[in-house]
Simulated scan of single mutants.
Amino acid sequence: MSWATTQSVTSPRHSSKVTTKVKAGARKVETILIRRIPVNLLVFEVGHFWVEFLHEDEAEIDEPMQAIRQQGLKEKDIVDEKGEPLQISTKANGFRESYGWYPAGMPFQPLNIFNDKRVISSDGTLNGDHEKRRKKDNNKKLTELTPTQDRQAGRKTNHNEHSSRAFDPHQNGHFHEGKIKFTTSPYVLPGDSRTDEEIFNEIRAYVAAFDSEGEEWSWANDSYKETNCHTLLFLLLAHCNLADPECIGIELDRHFIRYKASLDKQTNGTNDEKLMERILLIKKLLNISKNAKAE
């Protein structure tokens, strides 16, 4: 069997660890980036996991946005009193299409300990696109309407007031690569003939459905009980048959390892359909990620 040798795009301190041989016929989907900022409680870094799509036209700017930036308008200046956009973007305007899962509001809920709910939890929202998070951006007097700035709220729908594409707030990390700790691209297995655009559409459909189901955002130290940004990432990769041999396949993702171990302890006697679905999807993701590697 022949194979290709691949190396993921990572920070320098990781690059020597992630050279991986993959099976002949396994195709790297180079137009998709899996972005990881792992939780690091020692430096109070909450972390975030998300996916980005690379489009050749993402740097194009439409005329209304050019005028808005020239005038120095702020977030609050481009929506009406109800928060509805005053203009709709027809080009990407520099914002990279991307998807991740966020808490809608303050996730620390100490009173939840008395009602059998997770102490760190909140309503969840795709790309942080929620009224509470938008309000924080509106209140920032220095917010610049460019894709390079830190934001609380991204947008979950296309043709919003900032961009023709949905985007995760962390997409600005590609302008500041030091912020992103670990990046890989997924692979499709031999025999998978899907185009990149077909894969994009499958991911878009999955995250939209996930958002519509009213899932919470929660953190429980990688417990099976939680639902957060890395949960969504793992589930969408498995659902869309995308392998991650350069990270999950060689056991570099400690969140995945701990989350799967917690799920595996629940396999006996559970009648929870959602939990069983997650157990199967996470098992599938590990299998396809290992199968993408050369033997």
Rank of each mutant, 00 (worst) to 15 (best):
R36N: 13
I37S: 12
P38H: 02
L41K: 14
L41S: 13
G47R: 11
H48S: 04
F49D: 15
F49R: 10
W50G: 04
V51W: 03
E52Y: 00
F53R: 01
F53E: 04
H55W: 13
H55F: 14
A59R: 12
I61D: 01
I61R: 08
D62V: 08
E63H: 07
P64L: 07
P64Y: 05
A67N: 12
A67E: 14
I68W: 02
Q70N: 11
Q70E: 14
Q71T: 05
Q71C: 00
G72T: 01
G72P: 06
I78T: 11
V79Q: 10
D80Q: 04
E81S: 11
K82M: 07
P85Y: 07
L86E: 07
S89N: 06
S89A: 15
T90I: 10
K91W: 02
K91M: 08
A92M: 14
F95H: 11
R96K: 12
S98P: 08
Y99N: 03
W101Q: 00
Y102I: 01
Y102H: 15
Y102L: 05
A104D: 13
G105E: 09
M106T: 04
P107V: 05
P107S: 08
P107D: 10
F108H: 06
F108W: 11
N112R: 09
I113F: 10
D116E: 10
K117E: 08
R118D: 15
V119C: 03
V119R: 04
V119K: 05
I120S: 03
S121W: 02
S122H: 01
D123Q: 07
G124M: 02
G124Q: 09
L126Q: 10
L126E: 06
E131R: 15
E131Y: 13
R133L: 14
